[in-house]
Structures are given as C-alpha cells and as structure tokens.
Design a protein around this nucleic acid. Structure first.
Lengths: 128, 128
DNA sequence: CGGTATCCATTCTGATACTG
DNA sequence: CAGTATCAGAATGGATACCG
C-alpha cells in the first residue's frame, strides 16, 4: 500500500494551467536578474557589493529584491558576518545550483545566437 | 596568421555587460509567455486560437505580441493560408527549436521543484 | 556595507471595440 | 479567425534619502 484511499490525488504540476502555482514560479524565474545573479554565484559565495559590480547596471533595489526572492525560494543562502561594517555573503544552495544549470543555458544560448537573432531581426525589419 | 590586422576584434558577447546586446535579448527571452509558446509549439505547428486555448489565461494582445517578437527573432515562422476565414499557423524554426530545448528545461525545473520551493517559502515566512 | 522607505515616471497589461 | 487600436489601471523600476 503506497497511498491511502482518502489522500488527495497527486496533482501533476503544469504551467500551462493558469491556476497552477508553477505558472507563478515560472514567471518569477523568468527574469533577467534572477538568471544573472544565479550564474554569477557559480563562481562561489559573493557579497552584495561584488554582485552589484558584476551585474553591471543593476540598481541596489533590484539586486536586493532579487536576492530576497531567491533566498525565500530556498535557492540561495544569506550569511551575515558580524563586523564593522557588517559583511553579507550569498551562496547557491543545492536546489539553487540545479536551477542555475538550466537558467545558465538560456544565457549561453543568447550569447551564442545573438548574431543569428540580429540577422533575423534585420531581415524582418527590412520586409516591413 | 589567424586574423588580419585591420579586422575588428571578435568581441565576446557577455550578458553581464549592460551594454551588450545579449543583455536585452536575455531580458526578452526571460518571459513566461515566451517559454510557454515555444514549449507548446514542440507539439507541432499550431494556430493562434489553439495556442490561446493551450496557454490558459493569456490575452490575445499578449499572445500576438509574443508571437511577433519570436517571429522577428527568427525563432518561429508565421504561415498564412488563404481561406475564409484566414488560417495562420506558427511553427518552430531550427533556431527556435534549439531555444525551446533550454527554456523547456526551466519550465520542467519549476514543475519538478515546486514542492521544494513551497516548503522553503513556508519556512522563510514562518521565520519573519 | 547592506539595506529600507518613498516618490514618481515609465512600462506593462487587460479589457473593449472594431476591421478584413 | 486573426489581428489592430485605444485607453485606464496596475505593476515595474530607477533615483534619492536615510538607517544600523
């Protein structure tokens, strides 16, 4: 016996369903800063200021917001070291590392196919 | 001799650079509807109305906008068949198929790890 | 240094109405 | 069916100022 008769049926998650919680999760993960923060952390734990420099152009607000969201989801950890001034380090969790693998692929794809996309855009714009 | 002296240096694309065009491309691809449209098209060419049903909750405006953007980037094709009423089909290009592989992984990750994320969120919220 | 709070311009998005 | 145009409200994101 692997399940009781009263247990709710194991509902399959499916982002195509507007009501499925994975729809919102997919939406949250589909974010430029999420990708860049995670990929940056592949190089090891880093401080807020280091990430800020690395993610050229990100505002403090967006960086903090992104880090909080990822921390809440359990994909990164936030470690505070008492000092003056205080030191805060962010690092990938195993869950976050697995996510990073997939979002990294999107970044790599964009960099690898930028020329093809630029060409396609030029042709499309020339037509219209 | 592997390069000429007058050729522009082969600039490496890097999304961490705010000025790099891949930053904007990554931003465009990091979109819920982009992911869902591409993944839906894995099942073969589909009409606007079919996609609309499939992507539960998407407005016509957002769907058209997403399709146009993907078409311009060369990742999908738009085929119009003369008829009454007119028939329009969308399909993945080889370039789009390669992109779909990577964005599909993000959707799969979300569905596979929804429970872990929900648990992490509950713990985080309980703390604060 | 790391973060929060606030203000405000811009962008986004859904709803609605209309066209070929 | 597929798409465009428009408008109002929501959400986003940057700049700024301030705190521990």
């Amino acid at each position: 016996m692997t399940e009781t008769t009263t247990a709710a049926p194991p509902r399959a998650y499916n982002s195509f369903d507007a009501e499925c919680p994975t729809r919102d999760l997919l939406d949250e993960l589909s974010d430029k800063w999420v990708s860049l923060v995670l990929v940056a952390l592949l190089d090891g734990p880093q401080r807020h200021s280091e990430l800020r420099r690395r993610l050229n152009g990100v505002s403090q607000k967006m960086l903090t917001q992104t880090l909080r969201s990822l921390e809440r989801d359990g994909t990164i950890t936030r470690t505070v070291t008492a000092a003056v001034p205080v030191r805060v380090d962010y690092a990938l969790t195993p869950l976050g590392a697995s996510l990073t693998t997939v979002v990294h692929a999107v970044k790599v794809w964009a960099e690898a196919n930028m020329d093809s996309v630029a060409l396609a855009r030029a042709e499309y714009d020339a037509r219209s």
